[in-house]
Write a protein that binds this DNA or RNA. Structure first.
Length: 342
DNA sequence: GGATTTCTTTATGCGTCTAT
DNA sequence: ATAGACGCATAAAGAAATCC
């Protein structure tokens, strides 16, 4: 866990507790704040003195104070208990990345809400529909879903590498290579500044299209297999979980207004919206992509929320299995189930 | 010999960064 | 803005060691 993350989370908690700005007071860990051992506290105090995190500290403190005052949150009641989940990642199947829990009930995520909502293995997304936690390993998705195109690209890559004296002999299946050799492949398959050598652009394009089309098919098929799966899928794509939670974000980069949201539970969601349909379509581009778009009703009007998935080798070409990055393209203030905290 | 625990490796997850 | 490379943490898988 980076110091920045820790500073953001814990200073937000200090803001909720209603004390003065941390830089103006003696650095004593308040008794209401739990889960912070003395070492972590000492590290924190040291980190927040760093001038490069000054804006972060201010933003986090303001978010905490805002949460304390907000009508939908603490309404000026002093918290009795703020539990910091700490650096541990929670095991199992959790939708919300909760960093703080206030008075046993208010779940708060301090990470700023990214456009990337999930980063799962393709099998986890397209077949298990983001349920069941991560971890179950599948085969290489490209190889699984587009074996012909994948093999054609590998064979072309192999020939190109040998022809350019970058390799002497390569196996029929790159997974037979060890880790270092596979990492080297990723670097070698770049022809200078170009993304791919000219000879390999066409086979790579074929792979992209095949993966996009068939991933969308597979996703649709998985959704069709169970009734109600599409609505549940949308909730997962929006990081809507069984319990409502709060997001207190500070987008330090763009210095935009702080993002303070209440994320609904499925029950809340159905009070305000009515799910209509989830559309999944392949998206052709420079990499395999699949778009998703959901229509829903609010006060009788039909509205849409949309995003896309990028399937890619995040760890180098032919180096490890690809992953699926889920993007939310609708701005946060127009996402059904994300309510501005007032 | 098989069960159980501990250690090591790696796929997965969660981003951020950079070139174009 | 987009494509895609990079970095790092961690849960789970697999291997090795140890116990009964």
């Amino acid at each position: 866990m980076s110091d920045k993350t820790k500073v953001t989370e814990l200073v937000t908690a200090l803001g909720m507790l209603g004390g003065d700005h941390p830089l103006d007071t003696l650095p004593v860990c308040p008794p209401e704040l739990r889960g912070v051992d003395p070492t972590a506290w000492a590290d924190l105090v040291e980190s927040w003195l760093d001038p490069t995190v000054a804006t972060l500290v201010d933003a986090a403190y303001d978010n905490g104070r805002f949460f304390r005052r907000a009508d939908d949150a603490l309404r000026n009641r002093p918290p009795r208990l703020i539990e910091w989940t700490g650096p541990q990642r929670s095991p199992g199947d959790e939708v919300a990345p909760v960093d703080l829990r206030v008075d046993h009930v208010y779940l708060v995520s301090c990470k700023y809400l990214s456009k990337i909502t999930m980063n799962a293995s393709p099998g986890h997304l397209f077949e298990r529909l983001l349920t069941g936690g991560h971890g179950r390993r599948g085969a290489d998705w490209y190889q699984d879903i587009a074996p012909t195109e994948w093999l054609a690209l590998w064979n072309a890559s192999r020939s190109w590498l040998v022809a350019n004296d970058l390799a002497t002999s390569l196996p029929d299946d790159p997974s037979a290579l060890d880790r270092d050799a596979r990492k080297a492949l990723g670097r070698q398959l770049k022809d200078g500044a170009k993304a791919w050598p000219a000879e390999l652009i066409a086979p790579y394009q074929s792979l992209c299209e095949a993966v996009a089309v068939r991933s969308a098919e597979r996703w649709n098929a998985s959704l069709a297999a169970a009734t109600g799966a599409a609505e549940a899928m949308l909730w997962r794509l929006l990081r809507i979980g069984s319990a409502p939670y709060f997001v207190l974000g500070n987008d330090a980069k763009t210095s935009a207004a702080p993002l303070r949201l209440r994320v609904a539970s499925p029950w809340d969601w159905r009070q305000a919206f009515r799910f209509r349909r989830l559309y999944i379509e392949p998206l052709i581009g420079g990499q395999p992509m699949v778009s998703w778009r959901a229509s829903y009703l609010r006060d009788g009007h039909e509205l849409e929320v949309c995003g896309h998935v990028e399937i890619r080798w995040s760890h180098g070409r032919f180096s490890g299995p690809p992953e699926a990055k889920v993007y939310l393209d609708t701005p946060f203030d127009r996402v059904p189930g994300y309510f501005a905290l007032g």
